[in-house]
Write a protein that binds this DNA or RNA. Structure first.
Lengths: 235, 235
DNA sequence: ATATACACTTCTGTATACAGAAATGAATAC
DNA sequence: GTATTCATTTCTGTATACAGAAGTGTATAT
């Protein structure tokens, strides 16, 4: 958005090794390619990433602050756990933010912004079958973020993005059973937004998120088996 | 809470130099003892803290992830800015979370927990005059966190704590004009909680937070002058 | 007087080194 | 067979070293 503004062409922001490491390890943590609670060996990981421990540890510290990794002084860095309670709490925070976000969106968004959401929205394009789950979840996240952006509150958007990273694995697991439901629920939210019916939009959003919240316990259980099945594709 | 549980006496969690540095620099950033946008000299700062650059940079990376510092690759670390828009957005997110939090508290909190909040609440003890502003803000934050804890949602509490760190400086500035208002508004919230009147509690909380939101612009302006006056007490 | 080029200084980004803590495992005691 | 001790190995926590980028200031040209 601001990046393409010709008035502020700052030097193209040199990428450091820390940034690269950060992204790679983040992906590993988000996708639980590291097992829950697994200890990270800094020397091995640094070697595998072709770097030294110094930038690695800086990246790991960022990830600890984002709660994608755990850290114990004297013992090192660990993959975050997979805990139904934590996921449940994150869904609850997410609901609080998104229900209010869609309210604000009803009040603040321009007609054209809402039109863009309505006509561009993924639920028109989703091929429900034969589409990689990752793509579907990507569309899902994008839809919710787009609504958050209508509030013009950058902090809100950032917080939701962070929550999304932490529950993405869970979304991967339950998306395939819920594609159709998701699509129709998204549509209901957009309809309410177009009508600027704040209460209805809020209610639809609450419903949309709470439905998933109910299933967390079982999805997390499925998560463990998925994680430990993936040994098969290990290195 | 869990720390004193005899069943889980883990080794007393050795403190590292990173932890110490983290806390010291965090305090500097929170209190704007670093000027907004000021560049941090790693060598100087490390020397002043009696450490080397390695743990310093790890701590700084954590603080960047928490948005208490900025980072530009190739240029280094900077104190966060002081920006009315950002503060405004944080107050908005805070309102979203706390209004819903007090609703959940009405539903979930035990009678005894609410009693404890009501009888122990700071507004009974606040000495309005002649009390350091820092203490008053500490009571204020503690009050709000206590309510959040009634939800039993640890993530919610954590997110609010992080927001509090980022707006603490602003609270310091406007607290002295608002001590009495704060006290009575807190009381109204507690009364609604005791009555388990969810809608009323939510409305009181919303009002409580939005009142401050309206003043942010002017408080931020005051903030700049405060920051640049403090040169007088420099080292 | 302002702008440009260039040498010089300072600082960041990363690798490496090393001390001490933690984990591992063998050997011994019970 | 289980528990305990101690030697050995491995790994973390931090300091230091160094290359190259960024910043600074001076001298020269216009």
């Amino acid at each position: 958005m601001t990046a393409s503004d010709p008035a502020e062409i700052a030097p193209p922001a040199p990428r450091t090794r820390v940034d690269d490491i950060y992204e790679v390890v983040k992906e590993m943590a988000v996708a639980y390619r590291l097992k829950p609670g697994e200890r990270l060996n800094e020397m091995t990981l640094a070697r595998d990433l072709g770097a030294s421990r110094t930038p690695l540890r800086e990246a790991l510290n960022r990830l600890v602050a984002e709660r994608l990794l755990d850290f114990v002084a004297g013992r090192g860095f660990f993959c975050r756990g997979l805990d139904a309670r934590e996921v449940f709490e994150l869904y609850e925070v997410r609901r609080m933010l998104e229900v209010e976000a869609v309210r604000l969106a009803c009040r603040r968004a321009s007609d054209s912004a809402i039109d863009a959401l309505a006509s561009n929205s993924d639920f028109y394009h989703w091929k429900v079958f034969g589409q990689p789950i990752q793509e579907l979840v990507g569309h899902d996240e994008a839809f919710h973020i787009q609504i958050a952006k209508l509030t013009e509150n950058g902090e809100l958007v950032r917080q939701l993005r962070r929550i999304n990273e932490r529950i993405r694995f869970i979304r991967w697991l339950d998306m395939d059973r819920r594609v159709e439901g998701t699509r129709s629920e998204h549509r209901a939210i957009v309809d309410a937004l177009v009508a600027r019916d704040e209460d209805l939009a809020a209610e639809k959003m609450r419903h949309h998120i709470e439905r998933r919240q109910d299933q967390i316990e079982s999805v997390v259980r499925e998560g463990f088996s998925t994680i430990y099945m993936n040994d098969l594709e290990g290195p």
